[in-house]
């Protein structure tokens, strides 16, 4: 078990444990935000696992999480928006965490990777991940009760 796998194990437990707690308890808006953070963390863990197992094709799984994770959150923001109405907004901390966590994982991976096509792919996954996470946080903050009708 190399350092990458240890990092993956630590991120898995320290990250997804709290995510699970927040997604199962508390106000609805916080639950959706926790699910959003969950996709980010799983993507990062998958990147670490791909490196740790020395299997570059595994990064495809991380790419799919980075692409579809925020789509899932947008689904919740769109269809549960009316219910979230008066729930407290998430602070800027969640967005900052998304950017910092992605940087903390992707940058060492890039350094270890060295220049090449895999590096471009890694940077692309990082960019999609941060972009998707920030945008879906924004969609979540903008979900208002006035969309309470149904034919949208």
């Amino acid at each position: 078990m190399n350092a990458w796998l240890v990092a993956a194990a630590v991120l898995m437990v320290a990250g997804l444990g709290p995510v699970l707690w927040c997604v199962a308890t508390g106000p609805l808006r916080r639950r959706v935000a926790a699910q959003n953070t969950g996709t980010l963390l799983v993507c990062l863990v998958l990147l670490l696992l791909a490196r740790g197992y020395a299997r570059p094709p595994y990064t495809d799984v991380a790419l799919v999480v980075a692409l579809l994770g925020p789509v899932g959150t947008l689904v919740y923001a769109r269809l549960l928006g009316p219910e979230m109405g008066d729930d407290p907004q998430q602070g800027p901390l969640t967005k900052a965490f998304a950017v910092l966590a992605t940087a903390a994982v992707v940058l060492p991976l890039c350094v270890a990777e060295g220049p090449g096509r895999s590096l471009v792919k890694l940077l692309l996954i990082g960019a999609i991940l941060v972009g998707g996470n920030v945008i879906s946080s924004q969609a979540l903050a903008g979900a208002r009760p006035k969309e309470a009708d149904d034919h949208g």
């Binding site: 692409l67 769109r78 972009g131 945008i135 034919h151 949208g152």
Partner: peptide, 30 residues
């Protein structure tokens, strides 16, 4: 019943329109 237009924040809409072709290509790539 005719569906009503939805009110989605502009950045979200722009992001989705950029992401759509990227996701489509990723699907075909897979």
């Amino acid at each position: 019943v005719e569906p009503a237009p939805a009110d989605v924040a502009a950045p979200v809409r722009r992001y989705a329109l950029v992401l759509l072709p990227v996701t489509l290509v990723a699907g075909l790539y897979i």
